[in-house]
Structure formats: C-alpha cells, structure tokens
Amino acid sequence: MREKCQRCTKPATYHITDIDGGKVREHHFCDEHARQHLSPQEETEQTGTTPTAAPASSKASSRAAKEPPAAEKRPCPYCQMTFAEFRNAGRLGCPHDYEEFRNELLPLLENIHDETRHTGKFPRRAPDSTERQTQMIELRKTLKQAIDVEDYELAARLRDQIRTLEQEAGR
C-alpha cells in the first residue's frame, strides 16, 4: 500500500508510532519529514542522529542501495561532499555546496519551502546594494499589506527596518 507523507505530497517511506500521553499515534512521513519529526522539538533538536526506524517501503531501501547517478558523485572542491552523501546524511558539508549542487538542491528547496528566493534579513555588511533594494521592495510591500489589515504594530516595525536600510544605503 502506498501512503502519502502527511506533511507533503511525497510517498511516505517511514511509518512511526508515537506514544503520546498514553495514546498511540501513527505517523506517515517522507524521509525529510521523518527526520524532522524524529528530531524532538526545537530546543532539543536531535538532528545528528538520523532516523533509526527502518524504511518501510522496499522501494526506499532498494533506491538507497543502488549506485547514485554520476552527477551525484561529483565532490565539492572545498569539503569533498557529494550530493549522494548529502542524500544519505541530510546535511551539507559547507556553504559552497549550495552553489556546487544548485541544480540538485533547487527542486528540493521548492519542495520544502515552496519558494527558492530569500526575502528576509540581509547582513548589514552584505556587499550587493541591488539586494538591499530587492529587500526594500519586499519590505515596502509587506508594510502596505500590514497597513491594509490595520496591523499597526507590525507596520511600525517594518517602517523602522526600512529606515535603517535607507540610512545604510545613504552611508
């Protein structure tokens, strides 16, 4: 029986039983969400230990045993990690891997976040001023939305953030 992950549309490869306040609860997750689920809540994130539950679907185990495609065996020049290794460990080796494995990572990012473009905080020392501008555009858009729904607390904070950026740009 194929079951879907309860957090996304991928097939569920892990079936986890939790005992929660005496109640037994079944979960069905894809690899990604199984790992997320098994790492306890934020402050005790147990991300170093990947799930020990055996993959329930034979498809998952045979896939893991198969030779990864050639592209996935190309190592990052800085940390020597390959994309195949990342698939197994769930952790990248160095910041450059996002560049090195961009093509492989983008679909994954889209799947996890529904988006592939950062619109949040930029380090103040970020070199590229065009990026600051994009961020301003985004902030102003959010500010307008906040005012539209009369969320003035948020609006005030956004305005402060915009002012800070403006000051930096003029520096």
Partner: peptide, 21 residues
C-alpha cells in the same frame, strides 16, 4: 563575524530545511 550568506538563498545552513532566514 562573516556569516555564510547568499543573496538568493539567504543564510546558508547545514540542513536545507533551515536555509534562508
């Protein structure tokens, strides 16, 4: 400190589930 940051992807993290903000 120089934080790992990409204009497109934001703050770069060991796990892609945290990247961005």
């Amino acid at each position: 400190l120089d934080f790992a940051f990409s204009p497109q992807l934001g703050y770069l993290t060991a796990c892609p589930t945290n990247v961005g903000t």
